[in-house]
Computed example of a mutant assay.
Amino acid sequence: MTTPARTPVVFIHGLWLHASSWGPWLDLFFDAGYEAIAPGWPGEPDTVEEARAHPELVADIGIDDATDHFRKIIGALDGDPVIVGHSFGGLIAQKLLGEGLVSGAVAIDPAQMKGVRPLPLAQIRSALPAMGNPANLHRAVSLTREAFRYGFGNALSQGESDELHGKWSVPGPARPVFQAATANFSPRSQAKVSTANDTRGPLLIISGTADHTVPDVTTRATYRQYRRSGAVTELLQFEDRGHSLTVDSGWKEIAQATLQWLKQHRL
């Protein structure tokens, strides 16, 4: 008897976390019957230690560079995968879904796309480590423990936030932050998503209501961008969860909700 092929799931992280931070998700999804992978961004070293030692390897990477990179990865897979992305990974997941290249997508606290108007003060403050110096456009930037605490770990204890920073935080290219911030002023913005596509697969957008980096009001505005699409688009909010929700001690709640949604839509 032939064993049914496993559905591929590609996890895409955002800025300032390493691809290996998806490790617990990979194990959970494998046990649930999926073939899960978590490739890094273009140029990203295999380990946290190497990524910290060589920030120049990811410097100046933009949204299109990263999207092209993941487009090639999914093109080499057997069958159309599901994409699960966090932060800028969530934006990339939506871009690939809008292009019809994947069977479905989950965008967790996705970075701001073109057309989204709200820009809360918390979001601006979270972006300052990247955008505070215009020269950072061509650099990879690291977060201090304090900046990580504000942008990622604000809903956690100081101890847990510091632990996550020490375990997973790596330099990230600042260019995508500049691109997202200026998207509404750029006719050909790389942060543009095909939100009106009626033939794409289902999309779940997840929001942490205490998130500073991508506040809930921003995520809800992203959800409203799909109002002209007849395809399945759903929003799921988690109260009092911050931007660390994929890696902190409550990660399994988010992961299990994601699995339940995928099963519900037969993905």
Rank of each mutant, 00 (worst) to 15 (best):
D80C: 01
P110E: 00
P176V: 00
E239G: 06
G208S: 09
I206L: 12
A140K: 11
Q237W: 03
Q179P: 01
L121F: 12
A221T: 13
T258C: 14
Y226E: 06
A210Y: 11
T258R: 07
F185Q: 03
Q123V: 02
S244Q: 08
K167I: 04
D80A: 12
G98S: 11
F238S: 12
G250I: 14
D78N: 15
S244R: 05
A93Q: 00
H138M: 11
W41M: 15
A221M: 09
L121Y: 10
S142A: 09
P118Q: 03
L245V: 05
G75Q: 06
P81S: 11
N133H: 10
L101K: 08
L96C: 04
Q260T: 12
F178W: 10
N133F: 06
W22A: 13
M1W: 05
G79E: 06
G100E: 01
G159P: 01
T144M: 06
A180H: 00
F30Q: 12
A147H: 15
L91W: 01
H86L: 14
S249K: 12
V193E: 07
T233N: 13
W41H: 15
M1L: 10
P45A: 15
A191M: 00
P176N: 01
L119M: 13
F152S: 14
S189H: 08
G79F: 10
W16P: 00
R175I: 03
K263F: 02
I205D: 13
P24W: 02
Q190E: 04
R266W: 01
V170R: 01
T219D: 15
L15W: 02
G62I: 04
A180Q: 01
P55K: 05
G62M: 11
G89T: 08
P4T: 13
V48D: 09
I61P: 03
A183M: 06
W168R: 07
A180G: 07
V84A: 08
P120I: 14
A59H: 02
G23N: 12
E163I: 06
I73K: 02
E56I: 08
I92E: 04
E56Q: 14
V247D: 06
A210H: 09
P81A: 07
V102L: 06
L156D: 11
R188V: 07
L128D: 03
P120Q: 13
I73C: 01
